[in-house]
Design a protein around this nucleic acid. Structure first.
Lengths: 284, 284
DNA sequence: GTTATTACCTGACTAAAGTCAGTTATATGA
DNA sequence: TCATATAACTGACTTTAGTCAGGTAATAAC
């Protein structure tokens, strides 16, 4: 991996030079680029670029404003925040960066045959998924938190899709059993979007794992089992020696994962009409 | 590829931070690191790090000297050059960088299972090979040039090994037919070592491709056919409408490559006792 | 033996990148 | 309602990274 980094950065690092030739210094170009990618507030920019100093970012935004590439407006929902938007010119600059970067990549790949390019793309996609999976963190959040709500939205949308029913926009976020002190809800976030979530709560005197969801694009990278281990550790932490969960026969991948993780089939322990399979595991 | 770069650099770029915490700025740490990797002269450092300004490197070396990490001495074989060597302390610093970097990589890979790590390694190795192959350049050199000599050394060593005879250390470098104006010799260099080579010359009134060699670690990345195309273009440039070459039945990969490249079998055209197969291609 | 080239060096400079302390306006919690 | 926290900002500063124009000693070319 380190060997790869050194040789790769030395060769492909030149791609980043494409930020130059835009008349903007690298940092400022990165800001512009992230705005085009969807960053809307100063804070957003700061976190996306690795917790930059707020003053530093502010100054760069002034530069971009001065060049007429962005405009800034008060956030109506929070007057302290300011929303940043690309102007016509800014969008043009962004497209330019994009195009230049694309060109460079093309030039670089030019000597390869199509088959080799395909192999490279595949290898990079694999590496990307695994590195993403490795660097993701699973954090406890309040189930009412927007990120948690979004994750649960995906979960219920998917269940609705697969099980043939839908849930309203409201009603899945206010389950106090998934909040401390009785339970905990976790979300794994990547690039500002939730990619996995799940909660532990108390039910029938033991722990129960609920609403476990992994973004389809992320399945197969081991994120599910990491999340599961995380939830088990939390159940133990909450004082449970046993966890249970229910699922449905259609979800064969999930069932396989539970079995590999040491879960054993048990009889129905609740009256969830959508569940067909019930599992249990002793912890610790 | 660009998507990979962005996400990868954002996540793994932190690896480079390991250069920090050493009390040395990034550039200076890189210099130290390259010295540890075997850079011996200032020029060496400059080219390894992408043709840095000589003054800039000089200044960084003064810093390292000031900290007692390196010592510099006149090169006895060329009094203008100065040889740089790590001191005891410098070596300790280098080990430190190495260790820190290793630790980071380990920490990053920690959440992955062994199988995932293997997959990642394989993907990165593939990507590395292809990117290297894509970025390599094939340059004409005098066959007496040390790099050309080294490449031919590999070529003859390999032939000797496979064909059951060996050549002395001397005697393969002084073939004037492979030098301008009659011929040209090419070497592809990566990280300071030759990875492929081959020459064109005039023989029997037409072009002849000689001493084509590709480093075993680089086979399968299309470097051979790129080199072949390069040699054909050069033959054309030298005024030939036809090129010939000889090879041996054992080298099945090479024979396959020649056939794919449009070469046709012909009768023996020389008295090379080691050759069994003879090929010919019309150019232009 | 003279001239050109080369390898490395020094000094003077610039722009980018980032840090730190402190300010203002808004929002939040008791 | 008052204290506290937060989002963004301004000004003053430092360090890095890099460039450019010369200079010196050694080597190579004629």
């Amino acid at each position: 991996m380190r060997k790869f980094n050194m040789s790769y950065v030395r060769r492909v690092g030149a791609l980043e030079d494409s930020f130059l030739g835009s008349g903007l210094p690298y940092g400022t170009a990165r800001i512009l680029y992230e705005i085009g990618l969807g960053a809307r507030t100063v804070q957003d920019l700061r976190t996306r670029l690795g917790n930059l100093d707020s003053g530093y970012v502010s100054r760069m935004l002034r530069t971009l404003e001065g060049k007429g590439y962005v405009t800034m407006d008060r956030d109506p929902s929070d007057g302290r925040r300011r929303l940043v938007v690309l102007t016509e010119d800014g969008l043009k600059q962004w497209d330019d960066l994009e195009r230049r970067s694309e060109e460079r990549a093309h030039l670089l790949l030019d000597p390869l045959t199509q088959r080799q390019r395909d192999r490279l793309n595949e290898a990079l996609a694999t590496a990307d998924l695994l590195v993403r999976a490795a660097t993701i963190t699973i954090d406890p959040v309040d189930p009412r938190d927007p990120m948690a709500q979004e994750a649960m939205g995906h979960y219920f949308a998917e269940i609705g899709e697969r099980f043939g029913f839908t849930v309203g926009d409201e009603g899945f976020g206010d389950d106090p059993s998934l909040r401390p002190p009785h339970g905990t809800f976790f979300v794994a976030v990547s690039d500002g979007a939730p990619v996995a979530s799940g909660g532990v709560r108390e039910f029938g005197g033991v722990g129960e794992i609920k609403r476990m969801w992994v973004d389809p694009a992320w399945r197969g990278a081991g994120l599910g089992s990491r999340l599961l281990r995380h939830l088990e550790a939390e159940a133990l932490h909450l004082g449970h020696r046993v966890v249970r969960l229910d699922t449905r026969d259609v979800l064969t991948e999930a069932i396989g994962m539970y079995e590999r993780a040491g879960y054993e089939r048990i009889d129905r322990y609740n009256n969830n009409p959508h569940a067909t399979h019930f599992f249990r595991k002793k912890l610790g």
